[in-house]
Design a protein around this nucleic acid. Structure first.
Length: 636
RNA sequence: GCCGGCGUAGCUCAGUGGUAGAGCAGCUGAUUCGUAAUCAGCAGGUCGCGGGUUCGACUCCCAUCGCCGGCUCCA
């Protein structure tokens, strides 16, 4: 029989007869017993795939990320089989693995309800117990089209018709046949732990004009313990939900009677905001920005001139004053342009960096509103940098450094991506090319990795988006750096160069935190409401044991308050345990206990919100101790 | 905007055709009690809003507003 040479264990070359499977090779050579699939010449393949050529073979182990993806993808097939059996007439579409699980989209006349999930899970458990093999078959595209036509699966037919490959593969699992690249687990029995998590709507191919589908989400793991951990993680995330904490910590509220997506800040939340905004103003001034401020409404004519009316109108609010139409600003750039144009600019003036904590209004679709994360009125830490083309690179780098510094302060890690020209946009191809290259070059100069997000730029230019990762590893878009070569053109911005001629400047739109509302929402979840001392709305609360300490407590309160500490006084006739509990639930960093001992010895007994007793100390000692923590962070 | 779910006291929730309930919070009183909940009493709701069905609607139907989970979109 014909033999092929297979390299295993990164070294050994062995000869096996053609058609031997990866599974057999692993078994006879005592490698990869825990393999769930294989890598053959770098390609992922089924364990049961026959090897017909020589090459390098490696096990795909459970611990590798691709293994988990495959497990989840296989589980989605199991779910699809269960759904087809329980709901005859359902049509299948696609069922990929996603970041923390998988989904499968179905087209079905009546709707799935959350009550259906346990039934589907039960059927899936049966399929798993039956140890059904996943078996792969390859065929021509034409054959596959015929197969899925006969099966009454029009979505699969559509996918096939759009494919370029002439050879395709299908996987059979019990009575369920799916078009699929694979690989898959050897059998359904290899799914140790799974759970269905929810149903929701989706559109065929993500296009809102096309067929509405029903999506079922689930997840799967190689160990029950891991599934449990994941479910705990979801619980933890729920506890940290900024909408919950916003209410519990009395930070903000949103009222039906005031309007959806409109945030009302309570004293503690407004204070938190003010602290962040003050910090930002200080940092911007240090970094050579000028603080500016523009009006909330500007004439619609001006929005027409800028291109916003044509490209962004559906997101804007309009109003009329003395029969003149005004647009309520969805962005801050127009005023900044007018400041620039208010006098003749020399190259010696550039770069100009205009910073505004600018409140903007955007008509977001009702279904997307979400706590502080997605609202209709929000304040951006917005700036527009107007510079010469030569300065562009340095300016972008300066902004990136700014982002790096600020994210460091809050302890966020982040990922970046560059978005390129969208369909609906203005400007010439050359300008877009130039701007996109400028962004890429700056990122490379800064040594930062980035993904390219094709067609996702703003209508006036390409952008770098910064997605920060919070403590629960979720990603949120906050900072954005957008390069713009078209607005300077439209507004005819110029500067006089050293040659005495007029030249066109370029412009960067950028934010660091993005929306203050969104950022605070993310921050609340990131810290689980336990803000660092410099941001805590209440930094310390004085708790008396009995009313014999009241007078002394008032003295201590006055002293600390006078030092600028945000301190509160709890003189209620309640037990110390209750006062501590309540301060704890409000996540106050320090609780200062005053009982008879403290009054006699002239001090306080602080305790931290982490439950640590700091023991008796004088007020001066406490002040010295917290001094470094109560100030905003300072950079070199 | 779309698909699905949900709106009952300040909060968390019970109540599926016959005059609305609990716990916590609130108020009043007692208690002076040292590191996550002292005890008792009182008060609190046109059941999101508007129509309809019915002798009768928190409960069934329609419409609408809002919220939740997704989709599309986005800071």
């Amino acid at each position: 029989m014909e033999e092929v040479q297979i390299k295993i264990n990164d070294a050994e070359e062995i000869a096996v007869s053609k058609g031997t499977t990866a599974e057999e090779i692993f078994a006879s050579n005592k490698v990869g017993q825990d393999a769930v699939a294989a890598r053959f010449n770098g390609q992922l393949i089924d364990l049961t795939a026959p090897l017909n050529t020589g090459g390098e073979l490696k096990p795909l182990r459970r611990t590798e990320p691709e293994a988990l993806e495959m497990l989840r993808h296989s589980t989605s097939h199991i779910m699809a089989q269960a759904v087809r059996q329980l709901f005859p007439g359902v049509k299948v579409t696609i069922g990929p693995s996603i970041e923390n699980g998988f989904y499968y989209d179905f087209d079905y006349d009546s709707t799935f309800t959350p009550e259906d999930l346990p039934r589907i899970e039960a059927r899936m458990a049966e399929i798993i117990a039956q140890e059904q093999p996943f078996s792969r078959r390859e065929m021509s595209r034409a054959e596959a089209i015929k197969l899925f036509e006969n099966l009454g699966e029009p979505y699969k037919v559509e996918i096939l018709q759009d494919m370029d490959d002439e050879e395709v593969s299908i996987y059979e699992l019990g009575d369920f046949i799916d078009l699929c690249r694979g690989p898959h687990l050897v059998s359904s029995k290899k799914v140790p732990a799974f759970k269905l998590l929810g149903v929701s709507g989706a559109y065929w191919r993500g296009d809102e004009r096309r067929q509405r589908l029903q999506r079922i989400y689930g997840t799967a793991f190689f160990a029950r313990k891991e599934l449990k951990q994941h479910l705990n993680f979801l619980e933890e995330a729920k506890k940290r939900d900024h909408r919950r904490l916003g209410k519990d910590l009395d930070l903000f509220s949103i009222h039906e009677e005031a309007g959806a997506g409109l945030v009302i800040w309570h004293p503690r939340g407004a204070l938190l905001r003010a602290l962040i905004e003050d910090f930002e103003r200080t940092e911007h001034l240090k970094r050579g920005y000028d603080i500016v401020s523009g009006p909330m409404i500007l004439k619609t004519d001006l929005w027409q001139a800028s291109g916003h009316f044509d490209n962004y109108r559906e997101n804007m609010y309009f109003t009329e004053v003395d029969k003149i139409s005004y647009g309520i600003k969805p962005m801050n750039c127009l005023s900044h342009m007018l400041i620039y144009k208010s006098r003749l600019r020399s190259y010696r003036d550039l770069p100009l960096r205009y910073f505004e904590l600018g409140t903007v209004f955007r008509h977001e679709k009702s279904g997307v509103l979400h706590g502080l994360i997605r609202v209709r009125q929000f304040t951006q830490d917005d700036a527009h940098i107007i510079c010469t083309p030569d300065q562009l690179n340095d300016e972008i780098k300066g902004v990136i450094q700014f982002v790096v510094d600020i994210m460091g302060v809050f302890g966020f890690e982040f990922e970046t991506e560059i978005s390129t020209r969208p369909e609906k946009s203005i400007g010439t191809d050359e300008d877009w090319e130039l701007a996109t290259t400028a962004l890429q070059t700056a990122m490379e100069d800064m040594g930062l990795k980035y993904d390219i997000n094709v067609g996702d730029g703003a209508f006036y230019g390409p952008k770098i988006d910064v997605n920060l990762k919070d403590a629960l590893n979720r990603r949120w878009q906050c900072a954005t750096i957008q390069c713009d070569l078209t607005l300077p053109e439209r507004f005819d911005l110029t500067f006089v160069g050293s040659d005495g001629e007029r030249h066109r400047p370029v412009m960067i739109h950028r934010t660091i935190l993005g929306s203050i509302e969104r950022f605070i929402g993310v921050l609340i979840e990131h810290y689980a409401g336990a803000f660092p001392v410099w941001l805590a709305p209440v930094q310390a609360v004085i708790l008396t044991v009995t009313d014999r300490g009241d007078e002394y407590a008032r003295e201590v309160y006055a002293k600390l308050k006078n030092e600028g500490l945000r301190v509160e006084l709890d003189l209620r006739n309640e037990k110390l345990g209750l006062k501590i509990r309540e301060a704890q639930l409000m996540k106050v960093p320090y609780m200062l206990v005053i009982g008879d001992r403290e009054v006699e010895q002239g001090g306080i007994s602080p305790r931290t919100r982490t439950g640590k007793d700091l023991k008796f100390m004088t007020v001066e000692e406490f002040k010295a101790r917290v001094q470094p923590e109560i100030q905003p962070p300072v950079f070199q």
